[in-house]
């Protein structure tokens, strides 16, 4: 990871950066969700940044630890510059506010990762081309990795789907 990247983001988007921190060599920038796509585009296409590799997108539930409750965490890597960065967006619990803009328009590779965050945490990605559950099934009730989802929960049985027959 690289501190120069953090400095560049802070300098270029001073209003969008909520906070920054570094721990164990990992540099993190917490950004406003309104500027996420803009920052993503800059990170990918600026030759000094050149974050061509979308590494990971995941959600974290901080229930009872901090407000707002959810965080969506992005990791990006640059192969040419050999640096990495972690972006974080804080998301409210309230269903109408529980969303972040999708980055599928910038990196195609975040597509499934964003679907997984929706699946597990119920954070919507506005503008996502196909925001469906990916690891669990459509009839699953709730979002499994939320801290208030029990470790041993039973899901209602669903009817066996009937396949249309060939004529």
């Amino acid at each position: 990871m690289s501190e120069a990247v953090v400095a560049a983001i802070v300098e270029r988007f001073p209003d969008a950066v909520v906070s920054t921190h570094s721990w164990r060599g990992d540099d993190t920038v917490v950004v406003e969700r309104g500027a996420l796509v803009e920052i993503g585009t800059y990170l990918k296409h600026d030759p000094e940044m050149d974050f061509k590799l979308p590494v990971d997108v995941c959600g974290v539930d901080y229930l009872g630890k901090r407000e707002p409750r959810f965080e969506v965490v992005y990791h990006f890597a640059s192969i040419t510059q050999r640096h990495r960065i972690r972006l974080k967006v804080q998301v409210e619990e309230d269903p109408s506010e529980c969303w972040v803009p999708t980055l599928t328009g910038v990196w195609r590779g975040v597509n499934w990762f964003e679907r997984e965050v929706w699946d597990m945490y119920g954070v919507r990605f506005e503008g996502h081309p196909k925001l469906e559950r990916i690891l669990l099934y459509e009839e699953f009730e709730g979002h499994a990795l939320r801290k208030d989802y029990p470790q041993r929960a039973y899901q209602p049985l669903m009817p066996m789907p009937t396949l249309p027959r060939e004529r």
């Binding site: 979308p54 590494v55 990971d56 995941c58 974290v60 539930d61 630890k65 965490v73 990791h75 195609r108 590779g109 597509n111 499934w112 990762f113």
Partner: peptide, 16 residues
Amino acid sequence: PWRVKVRPPCFAAMQA
């Protein structure tokens, strides 16, 4: 751990 997230390499590869 509060959260463990695995980044599986073939997850990214399979979407292509």
